[in-house]
């Protein structure tokens, strides 16, 4: 008897809700961004590296970060950008263009991050161009992806 096997699949959703602590260091960043629209970083007391995002220890020196805090940005340099052509990605990130940005006062190679680009004419996007953040005004959380809606080119 050769009956064709039927292969079944069992659908399931794994739903996990976490509560993430921001801790002392990233927590200070969150508070400054939420309350004062200021972007801050801390520093390694040994090598002087600006730690952005702020954190407990310098990866290169493995010593506890100093108590020195600095303001960084809000202006930034666009390092790289791309159009989100993959189905679903544009919706997920609520943007058609994403950029890799380095805030002024941070070490680009160690502290750049991805964010939405807000541009009228994508054809004008250039690597190396100067950008500034557009802040979210309502329901601020301190989270960089929520409180900054995106980066736009600095006019002029």
């Amino acid at each position: 008897m050769t009956e064709k096997a039927e292969f079944m699949r069992l659908p399931a959703t794994v739903n996990l809700e976490y509560k993430y602590s921001t801790g002392r260091y990233l927590g200070r960043f969150y508070k400054e961004l939420r309350d004062n629209k200021r972007l801050v970083a801390n520093k390694c007391g040994k090598c002087g590296r600006v730690l952005f995002p702020p954190r407990i220890a310098c990866p290169d020196c493995m010593v506890r970060a100093s108590d020195e805090w600095v303001e960084v940005g809000p202006q930034a340099t666009l390092i790289f950008f791309y159009e989100l052509q993959i189905p679903g990605l544009a919706e997920r990130h609520a943007a058609n263009y994403l950029g890799v940005l380095a805030l002024d006062g941070t070490e680009a190679e160690l502290s750049c991050f991805e964010h939405r680009l807000m541009v009228d004419d994508p054809g004008k996007l250039r690597e190396g161009m100067r950008m500034e953040p557009v802040f979210n005004e309502e329901g601020r959380t301190g989270r960089i992806r929520d409180d900054i809606l995106g980066f736009k080119p600095i006019e002029g």
């Binding site: 602590s21 801790g23 990233l26 407990i56």
Partner: peptide, 25 residues
């Protein structure tokens, strides 16, 4: 431990361990 991100707990003990043994990481 709301005051710490999860890996910051690790740093607390690693820092103390190195301090107490006098070893260089």
């Amino acid at each position: 431990r709301d005051d710490a991100r999860v890996f910051e707990l690790t740093f607390e003990v690693v820092e103390r361990l190195l301090d107490e043994t006098g070893l260089s990481i």
